[in-house]
Amino acid sequence: MAGAALRRLMAEYKQLVTNPPEGIVAGPISEENFFEWEALITGPEGTCFEGGIFPAKLIFPFDYPLSPPKMQFTCDMFHPNVYPDGRVCISILHAPGDDPMGYETSAERWSPVQSVEKILLSVVSILAEPNDESGANVDAAKMWRENREEFNRISEKIVRKSLGL
């Protein structure tokens, strides 16, 4: 019998395949390694990221679901909650205990109740409504707050790039 982490990942994959949430596709990159996933996230409608399809990589730890996975966009992304190198900074991806930004309560941290689906839905929601207080990308946070037009222009560019246009 396979390990607990692997079985849980397989269960989540099955769930995502049989009952996919809108605008999200995710699965292991290769059948041989269930601990590296690729996800495609559609930019939520009515936002500046509308229409974009953003690929991201999910790396799961050995002790998943006790520890959170890491998520990183593999495309260009300009967003207050995404580091310039693509790593996503949302509270549910942080294990209780460590607090990189010093602003989160433990109630919004990772717990085994979370899942890939919930993570991706959270990411969709921060695409729609960035949290400019956490500021993984300070430039983006500042622009989002002060110069929304410029921000929208850049995100439109990113959307077009993500579609290969």
Partner: peptide, 9 residues
């Protein structure tokens, strides 16, 4: 050997 835990095959 650690990888054994990760792979179904």
């Amino acid at each position: 050997v650690d990888y054994m835990e990760r792979s179904p095959i």
